[in-house]
Amino acid sequence: MDSDFRQAYLLHRRPYRDSQVMLNMLVEGIGQLSMLARIKGKRALRQNASLQPFTCLLIRYAGKYDLKYLNDFEIQSPPLMFKGTDLYCAFYLNELSHRIIPVNEPLDHVFCLYQQHLKQLYGIGENMTIVAHGASSKSPANSEQIEAILRNYEFQLLYELGVGIEFDYDAFGAPIEETSYYQFVREVGFCPSDDIQRSFSGETLLAIAHGEYSSLLSRRQAKALSRYLLKPLLGSKPLKSRELFQPR
């Protein structure tokens, strides 16, 4: 069955056999699909140039079963040209999405969620270039914005996958209190706790609930919590994009 043209982003590609490549595409209103594309002949150079990450495509595919076949595609909008740290973060969004979004499982909103955060990430780089006139280093404010985008994407994506958590209510349905402390229990939620050293403050949880990461503590605890929640979905295989952030 042929599809109508839909917007899509390339998350991952690898050679398959002969002139074919295996693609993982995040498709508007659908979710993640695996599909084969044939790249050959006079159009191969242009096709390869178009099938790049961070480019919104219009695609048409066919196939009744899990593996689809890419019949046609064209560029919907120019590619987002990330640089430096922003590029590493964009690769992280792609790899994380590819790894934890199930293939062939209907998820209507993940495309818009991905596109929204990808554009936000690109916007930070653009604004920094304008303000700094080409300076290569990021200000603390830029770093805070980047972390906020990544954490918001992680937590919202987990919610779309059905494994998200509530940050403004505890495990018993009571509103989180700013002056109280809570321990997180998997598959239960945040439980009130007297162990301040091993708990999240209510202030931090409410900040995360509103996507605010101005304090160093909220950024550190949000990052630790997101990694804890993502670990079962990622398994033992580490994310390659995280290695790009390691000091060399």
Rank of each mutant, 00 (worst) to 15 (best):
S77Y: 12
Y65T: 06
V27A: 08
F73L: 11
Q76K: 07
L10N: 04
A44Y: 14
L58S: 05
L80R: 15
S77H: 09
Q76N: 13
H12Q: 10
Q52W: 01
D66R: 07
I39L: 15
L23E: 07
D2S: 08
L11V: 01
A8H: 05
R13Q: 12
D4T: 10
F73R: 03
N71Y: 01
V27E: 08
L57G: 07
R38C: 14
Y69N: 13
Y16E: 05
R17K: 14
L45D: 02
R38M: 15
I75Q: 07
G29V: 10
P78T: 10
L26E: 02
A37V: 11
R46D: 04
L57I: 10
Q7D: 08
Y9Q: 00
A37N: 06
S34M: 05
Y69A: 06
F54T: 01
K42W: 14
V21M: 10
G63V: 06
L33I: 13
R6M: 05
Q20T: 06
Q32H: 06
F54L: 12
L70W: 07
P53G: 08
F5H: 13
E28K: 08
K68E: 01
G31W: 06
L67E: 03
T55M: 00
I59S: 00
S3F: 03
R17S: 13
L26Y: 04
E74L: 07
L67V: 14
D4E: 09
Q32R: 15
Y61I: 05
M22T: 03
P53A: 03
R14P: 00
D72R: 09
H12L: 01
R46S: 11
Q76G: 11
N48K: 15
L26R: 05
K64Q: 09
T55K: 02
A62H: 12
G31Q: 06
L11N: 00
I75M: 06
L36Y: 10
R60T: 00
M22Q: 09
Y16V: 03
S50A: 14
S77V: 01
G29P: 08
D2Y: 07
S3V: 08
G29H: 07
L26A: 04
I59G: 01
D4F: 06
Y9H: 09
E28C: 04
D4R: 05
D18G: 11
D66L: 04
A44D: 05
E28H: 09
E74W: 11
P78L: 13
A44I: 12
S3W: 02
F73I: 02
D72N: 10
Y9S: 00
F73N: 03
D66H: 05
C56A: 13
I39T: 13
D18L: 04
D66E: 10
G29D: 03
K64W: 00
N48T: 04
L23W: 12
L51Q: 11
S19I: 01
P15C: 07
I30R: 15
E28A: 10
M35E: 05
N48Y: 07
M22E: 13
Q47T: 04
K64H: 04
G63Y: 06
Y65F: 08
R43F: 01
H12N: 13
K42G: 14
Q32M: 05
A37Y: 03
T55C: 08
M35V: 01
L67C: 11
L36K: 14
N24Y: 07
D66F: 03
V27H: 06
D18Q: 10
D66T: 13
H12I: 00
N71M: 10
Q20K: 09
